[in-house]
Design a protein around this nucleic acid. Sequence first.
DNA 1: ACCTGAACACCGTTCAAGT
DNA 2: ACCTGAACACCGTTCAAGT
Lengths: 214, 214
Amino acid sequence: MSRRPATPARATHRGRTTYHHGDLPQALRDAATRLVAEHGADGFTLREAARSVGVHHAAAYRHFADKRALLAAIAEEGYVTLARRMQVADAAAPVTDVLERVRRIGAAYVAFARKEPSLFALMTGPRLNEDGRFPSLEAALRGCVDALEAPLRAGQASGIVRKGAVGMQAMTILTLLHGYAEFVLTRRIQVKPTRVAELLATLLEPALRGLQRH
Amino acid sequence: MSRRPATPARATHRGRTTYHHGDLPQALRDAATRLVAEHGADGFTLREAARSVGVHHAAAYRHFADKRALLAAIAEEGYVTLARRMQVADAAAPVTDVLERVRRIGAAYVAFARKEPSLFALMTGPRLNEDGRFPSLEAALRGCVDALEAPLRAGQASGIVRKGAVGMQAMTILTLLHGYAEFVLTRRIQVKPTRVAELLATLLEPALRGLQRH
DNA sequence: ACCTGAACACCGTTCAAGT
DNA sequence: ACCTGAACACCGTTCAAGT
């Protein structure tokens, strides 16, 4: 542990002088995240990721079981980022206007999908999850549900939102958000970039009305 | 056009005696549909499709520009089937109970996704649509929207459903349906197979309430 | 313990040549 | 007009061997 250079993080393919890589797992995750964003998850290859960090392609197998395991790792990182963005959006809204909070959280979900379309597709698509592998990914939606439950619970407490299972109310919103995000990404809904949030608000309207008391 | 065998459709790899295939494009579409269902769109290869119908793999390029074009063709067929299933489900519901009709149409959408998960993922996923190719696929959702608009329009006429843009109301429902289908397929929502329709009805409830008058 | 070399069994795509 | 042979430039994965 002392033979390594003082700044192992800078030991990239340009400047690597040692046989061992500084932190190859993280370097591969970073490269994969970048390459997926550039070429899509379909165009991503393990060999290019290894090349871009300056190691032999077989080296990746010391740290990840296979290509899918590496992709699953970056998908998990994506879910953490997504949940954080939703929470930040919530915090920026007036605390007592719970419906507006839900709208802002929703806008953050869709904005993330539009900003990182390939990562979002990887995170939510069937590529990693059709079989039972990566159960951590199956639970990854938890953070998004939590973000939506906060304003809904507050709304129930203040009497704005109907009493009932807050988890179900959150899932109603989340399924709608997700379907909208997917349709926008795949051009099934053709909407001008400047109008994405506006259309989302329109589509959310009936669901929000149905969640209100009276 | 007279040198071909009398039953060109039976000219498969087992019994083919002529140099020319009976209807290679359709045979390739059929093989692709079957193989995608078996191994998923990720596991699908052009070479295996060609092998399974008994032609050289390069022969496919006479009829389809590339692998994606073949997949786009079967995705389009899938949308036709899906829209038909939704219409059939609608027809099976009591005509005047427009909300029940929407529920049944929704159940048909989700049932299709569960019955043909790989085809559904191919149809709705970004694999074929991230660039602007295959505009016919972008319009393919039209049939699904139409199916939902019918009961909503009837509901507006009979005063059960709020007045307003019926297209927006249909998209509210459809985005929710699609998000739910995706979450179920990718195990983001863990629900027993027997409870899928029931949970859908629960999640739809707020949206349906919001669409009603009063 | 971590990485490389070399190999295996595949792909998608192209293009000249066969029927 | 339609299909095949042969080739090209890749993949993911494995495993013995190097440091």
